[in-house]
Design a binder for these strands. Structure first.
Lengths: 142, 142
DNA sequence: TATTGTTATACTCTATAACTATA
DNA sequence: TATAGTTATAGAGTATAACAATA
């Protein structure tokens, strides 16, 4: 053993915030493997559009708590990949959003990947422990 | 109630990864209020330098799992704020890192802020629940 | 006037590749 | 040759401010 400490000191290791960050990073890495080609945020957008066909860009931005200007580029990318389409709304200031056929297909595949992912990260928890973890996380989130 | 779903659908809400992300975001927001002027990552660096005075940039980068090129700019900022100092090592390729007086002072203040922060985010958990949450998070992190 | 989508711009955090000075 | 620090560059992801079209 070295005189120097190897990783972050015990000071951090006892903190909920730090441990939450470590867990989230581990989960994120597994997600990237299980759901190639889509980040968690992107999947969230596809799910939301799928559940709310024709939703406007501003409503979507509001739903995921981002500025509407932020959505423009993100949606440009999804549209460039032919996963979504924009269509001008009855209120002609708005764009309605829909999944394309390819978007539906990719979302379905992503959801299967997420199911595998979820199973893998919960592998070391019993069903009761998984429930309790969700409960405690909910308490933290306020 | 609208026909459209308000936020992300139940599909996501049952997922550990999603709930972890929500909890982490809530904690992050509270951290920013409790520990003004330093992000969680920056505090981690100061703690590590404090615990390992004279550590080189590369060892620090390795400890926090970042590329050494990433550290350069970050350390430039901390140095520009006079929180750390670099000193050329015996091996003259290296820079040793130390906290300055101001860095020590700010770190001490940050640690007090983190203590308040930790107390606040754990406020809705019993001691046993807090322990269990740490345990379950450890299991998730692998 | 107010709202929607857009653009221009900028900031944070991160990485890779190539350079320099040392070893 | 190999390593430490640096630079140039790039790419996510995010925001604010201002603008045109539309309401």
């Amino acid at each position: 053993m070295d005189a120097k400490q190897k990783l972050t000191p015990g000071a951090l290791y006892g903190l909920l915030g730090y441990r939450l960050r470590l867990a989230q990073q581990a989960v994120f890495r597994d997600f990237a493997v299980s759901v190639p080609g889509l980040s968690p945020g992107r999947v969230g957008l596809l799910i939301f559009i799928d559940a709310n066909p024709g939703v406007t860009q501003s409503r979507l931005a509001e739903a995921v708590e981002r500025d509407r200007s932020t959505m423009v580029g993100v949606l440009d990318q999804l549209e460039a990949r032919s996963l979504i389409k924009r269509r001008r709304g009855e209120d002609r200031r708005t764009n309605g959003l829909w999944l394309t056929r390819a978007g539906c297909t990719l979302l379905a595949r992503a959801l299967r990947g997420i199911a595998r992912h979820e199973k893998r990260i919960a592998a070391r928890l019993s069903a009761a422990e998984r429930r309790q973890l969700l409960e405690l996380l909910g308490r933290i989130s306020g």
